[in-house]
Design a protein around this nucleic acid. Structure first.
Lengths: 222, 222
DNA sequence: CGCCCGGATGAGAGTCCTCTCACGTCCGCC
DNA sequence: GGCGGACGTGAGAGGACTCTCATCCGGGCG
């Protein structure tokens, strides 16, 4: 049976996660502090580690760092605070495979757990995140961040941003964007694209979206 | 380079798909009718087939059937009409790997193409669809169908339905559902769950959602 | 039989989202 | 410098979504 180690000191959250994972058919163990988590993670008995950032004794980052220093490649999903996206970035760079921001819906966590436990695949975090410069899009939660600061985008805004991020530095015509994001049967005379580019500029930084007169728009790289 | 065969007779749509896929780095060929599509698909030169249902000469289902009869396991994504979900079900049962309903946004198609082309994985359609009896949830488009009839669910409604579909026949307490779907820090005194169960009953059929007095709700199986 | 409690239901407030429209502004060309 | 077309911008209509609240209903138990 698949075993998951939960490193979380807040009893309420730990219990909540444990109950849910057990209902989902996983075996679970709770480590209430960083030192215990590190010991258990090194035992080879677990298939995945859910790692809270704010652990007593030894914080999540330290646990992760030491684990990786010991050449342990156990998949790690970090639990970070919503308002501190910097943690997220640091976590991914520090060798975490994925992350979930608190407070989270259980299904959100479960989706990521399932993804990481799929056999025969070596995902290194990038699959779920599109990035260009300081811009970051999380395709699983459809969430965006600029320079570590989380930004909330509507569904349409996200789709448009995604289209740009998939072709960084490339000029995209209004027609291309319309069919990509809105669908091929949308009225070509509309200026929705303009309006939504404006929204993105406001939320993600105007300097990132260059207009190419007579052609369309381009995501400035770097 | 990855090659995709586009079996589509409507020139406008074929061109739209082709342009997008080429921009995405795929090589493409268009087959304007079923017979050509079948011939080309059998040539072994393609990695994926996008197959429209309404093709001249030989409709999509026939192409798919003959292809599978010839023991050809080429991944197939079908293009079906939005209002005819029966096609979808029939298509999946007939050996299609996935489907997209028209009219579609290009990014939607692309996401499925990427999924099917991931190396080293054998996905047989089920991964993206949860089903119990006549109920069907498509996790990629977050779209639902009852007995082949497409039903539109809001985001919350879909999440709740998903929670039920993941534990068919099992009693789920309001608290479980609240933390699963709404998050662990949601006011437990609320009756949102009741209200949303009602919405699901209205949209998906009341008989499917059984209330267990004093305990919670259960999805009736079968 | 009547009460009580859990559940069902209808209405609606507040919010967000999407898109349109009318108008202001700016660039580039003549 | 002036003009025209392309782009930017603000306002807002219309609709969908989420959730709350008050009230109704109905079954089981005393």
């Amino acid at each position: 049976m698949t075993s998951i180690l939960i490193a979380e000191d807040e009893a309420r959250i730990a219990a909540f996660v444990e109950k849910g994972l057990r209902a989902g058919g996983y075996a679970t163990t709770i480590a209430p502090d960083g030192r215990t988590a590190l010991d258990l993670a090194g035992s080879g008995m677990f298939d995945l580690l859910l790692l809270d950032v704010g652990l007593p004794e030894l914080d999540g980052f330290s646990v992760l760092r030491r684990l990786r220093q010991a050449r342990n490649s156990l998949p790690v999903i970090m639990l970070t605070a919503r308002d501190d996206v910097t943690d997220t970035v640091a976590g991914l760079e520090g060798g975490a495979d994925d992350y979930v921001t608190k407070p989270f819906r259980f299904e959100e966590l479960l989706a990521r757990v399932r993804l990481r436990l799929r056999p025969g695949e070596d995902r290194t975090g990038e699959v779920t995140v599109l990035a260009s410069g300081e811009l970051q899009l999380d395709l699983l939660t459809r969430t965006a961040a600029v320079a570590g600061r989380s930004v909330s985008l509507s569904s349409r805004e996200f789709s448009l941003a995604e289209a740009f991020l998939r072709h960084p530095g490339q000029v995209l015509s209004r027609e291309q964007l319309l069919s990509s994001v809105w669908g091929y049967d949308f009225d070509p005379g509309s200026n929705v694209v303009d309006v939504y580019v404006r929204y993105l500029r406001k939320k993600l930084g105007a300097e990132r979206f260059e207009t190419v007169r007579g052609m369309g728009y381009r995501l400035r790289t770097g």
